[in-house]
């Protein structure tokens, strides 16, 4: 059977934004609507805190910001792509087009966290990066990150 790591309800494609703050704000709002984050401002503060420790722009137009906080009720990933590349101070100095915002609870069972870790790992795969660039809709995106389970 197939496991989908990416929840279609937590995806925003072709966002019209011009800064890192705006993307995070948009995705954090999604989390808040779905009850995954109980306090949006505190969560954003945690994400910004992490960002100030070092960039999460991992190169090739991908960023993987994350916030660990007690206001996160369950581990999740929200995904955005931007209409125009935005500056992220990335490791390769290139602007970012794909954002994977992780919500990490203070306490969680390992399984959910491992899924997020797996997703992060897959983003290092050249194949996945190529496919990501061709994504036009949510279904394409889901497909990249679904994994087969026997």
């Amino acid at each position: 059977m197939t496991i989908k790591i990416v929840d279609p309800l937590l995806v925003r494609l072709n966002l019209n934004v011009s800064s890192r703050e705006e993307v995070i704000e948009e995705l954090a709002a999604l989390y808040y609507e779905k009850g995954i984050v109980t306090n949006k401002q505190k969560y954003i503060a945690a994400v910004n805190q992490r960002e100030s420790d070092g960039t999460t722009g991992i190169g090739d137009g991908i960023a993987i910001p994350h916030g660990k906080s007690s206001v996160v009720s369950k581990a999740a990933v929200a995904v955005a792509s931007t209409a125009n590349p935005i500056d992220w101070n990335a490791l390769d100095d290139k602007p970012v087009k794909y954002i994977f915002l992780l919500a990490v609870p203070e306490k969680s069972d390992n399984t959910h966290l491992e899924l997020l870790s797996e997703l992060a790992g897959t983003l290092m795969d050249d194949d996945v990066r190529e496919k990501l660039k061709k994504v036009t809709n949510v279904l394409d995106l889901e497909k990249i990150f679904e994994s087969e389970v026997k």
């Binding site: 059977m1 197939t2 989908k4 399984t111 959910h112 899924l115 389970v149």
Partner: peptide
């Protein structure tokens, strides 16, 4: 995140 339970079992195993 549907189907996580199956994943959980497999992971635990």
């Amino acid at each position: 995140m549907k189907g996580l339970e199956v994943m959980t079992l497999k992971k635990i195993g």
